[in-house]
Amino acid sequence: MKNIWKRFSRELGIIIALILLMAIFGIIEPLYLTPTNLMDIVDQTVINGLLAVGITLVIITGGIDLTVGSTMAIVIVAIGKLLVSGLHPWAAVLLGILFGFVLGALNGFLIAKMHLQPFIATMGMMSVYRGIAYLVTGGWPVLNIPQSFRTMMDGDILGSVPSSVIILLIVSAVGYVLLKHTKFGTYLYSMGSNEEATRLSGVNVDYNKIMAYGLCGVATALAGMVMLAKLGTGEPAAGQGYELNAIAAAAVGGTSLSGGKGSIFGTFFGAILLQALKIGLVVCGVDTFWQYIATGVIIIAAVYLDIIQGQIKNWKLKRQ
């Protein structure tokens, strides 16, 4: 039991924080804790949750991906257009995933092979991808997305659970297994913690890095298609600023932006926590402007908590 606590202390910490937060909102406004509202929180976490899971892989390698908002937009307009022109929904989803992978892998290529700094490389590509999204539609939104696709990506299955929530759960589970139980995941952590030692250990660092960005692109594409299904229209301006929300969820979930540390479990609940906070403030009738402040404070508090935890750990080690 002590071991479990030690291994998952960060993850359990965020769950406790989430429960506390919900309890407080529940006391102030009992409506907050109704099943409908709770389902709403999860449902509205899906898009940011998918982005955050993807970006967690990249951040663990010590990188960052600022293109997720723009990548989403490309997938949204391109897949939207193909759907409108009659492409089968299943084919569209597979194609969207492929698009996402290619766009992400291209980021990875710039970083791994051309040695650009991840922040600069993806900041540049963020602008390029956004431009492409506008060019695809000439700036116009794509209208009348077929209902079959919308039902597939966001329709209720399993009673009143939307399929988008199931997608998030599956992607999170896959991400979790990938990170914790595969060779690839081990390499992502070791690259993020010490890239040179990893390379000297005979690991193909470039390949694994490109794959990490590619998979981030896949999760991003799924987020884009969920958004397309939810809205029924494809805007080339979609997803602007979403990269920051995704990074915030990962950071709140304990993923270190210097690489080598983090988990999908933490990111998942980090995303839920941020959404629960947002909806809680709305339900309690707090002015929208306060939401920004509250969100920012939570991010800083969570990361500061990590620093304190690290210091306590160091202190304990010194004591030994």
């Binding site: 139980h181 595969t182 060779k183 995941g185 010490n194 030692a197 990893t198 250990s201 690991v203």
Partner: peptide, 29 residues
Amino acid sequence: KTQGFVKDFSNAQNMALASMDKFTSGAFV
């Protein structure tokens, strides 16, 4: 420190890093 071991890894993980294929059965570690 900079070339030999991964600082966030345990002894067991560091010892395995260069031979992950040996510790992978099927897709899983």
